[in-house]
């Protein structure tokens, strides 16, 4: 475990804490894409299939359970909680996210390291995670005003994978010197998708003004 990966995991955890904070304290999920949250549940379910078959460390197992539990909990809140579900921006969360799942499945069947169920599903989870933020970014562009916690949530979510890229550089140089094209390219695409959000987020933070994405 290197510092970049630890920072990455903590940033990812923090993003989830911020989202839960928003949903639980404000009792609102306005501006949050349910579709992105559902995609993340699929990402975690298909990536952590080895949860009960392979043991790496207490940390690894604990974090997998936290990510699975919180992502499922958030979807439950947005779908079934009597107060929160009323605040879901249903009419604006219109991205056709089933296409993202289909494309990721097809790509995972075509490009993978080994053709076995676990490996193909793990590869699928990497491809899906790379594009899972798209419904959320589209929703942000439609939102007139983006509340601070939502902006912070998306920023932290984008930052975690950027830190993972540093972790991969470190591991390549210092550890196994092996090329891991699939996670690397997926991670680069994922981070690149946040590029313009990062630009507007940092600009709004520097100018102390409300975050606004161009339509």
């Amino acid at each position: 475990m290197n510092l970049f990966r630890l920072l990455g995991d903590m940033t990812h955890l923090l993003s989830i804490v911020v989202l839960l904070l928003k949903i639980r304290t404000v009792k609102s999920c306005a501006g949050i894409s349910l579709k992105t949250q559902e995609l993340y549940v699929i990402v975690f379910l298909t990536r952590y299939l080895d949860l009960f078959t392979k043991y790496y460390s207490v940390y690894n197992t604990a974090m997998k359970l936290v990510f699975l539990g919180t992502s499922i909990g958030i979807v439950w809140y947005m779908r079934y909680h009597k107060v929160v579900k009323q605040t879901y921006s249903k009419d604006e969360d219109t991205f056709k996210h089933y296409f993202l799942i289909l494309l990721s499945i097809i790509l995972a069947l075509l490009i993978h390291r080994a053709f076995d169920v676990i490996e193909v599903l793990w590869t699928f989870s990497l491809y899906l995670e790379a594009v899972a933020i798209l419904p959320q970014l589209v929703l942000l562009q439609k939102s007139r005003n983006i509340d601070t916690l939502t902006g912070d949530y998306v920023f932290l979510l984008g930052a975690y994978r950027a830190l993972y890229i540093l972790n991969w550089v470190y591991r390549f140089l210092m550890e196994n010197h092996k090329f891991r094209w699939i996670p690397w390219i997926s991670g680069l695409v994922q981070t690149a998708l946040y590029a313009d959000f990062f630009y507007y987020y940092i600009k709004s933070w520097k100018n102390r003004e409300k975050l606004k994405l161009p339509a």
């Binding site: 990812h12 080895d50 790496y56 460390s57 990510f67 390291r113 793990w122 196994n176 092996k178 996670p183």
Partner: peptide, 10 residues
């Protein structure tokens, strides 16, 4: 033995 591409990451 761990496969070369260990899945020890989250």
């Amino acid at each position: 033995a761990q496969d070369p591409f260990t899945k020890d990451e989250l």
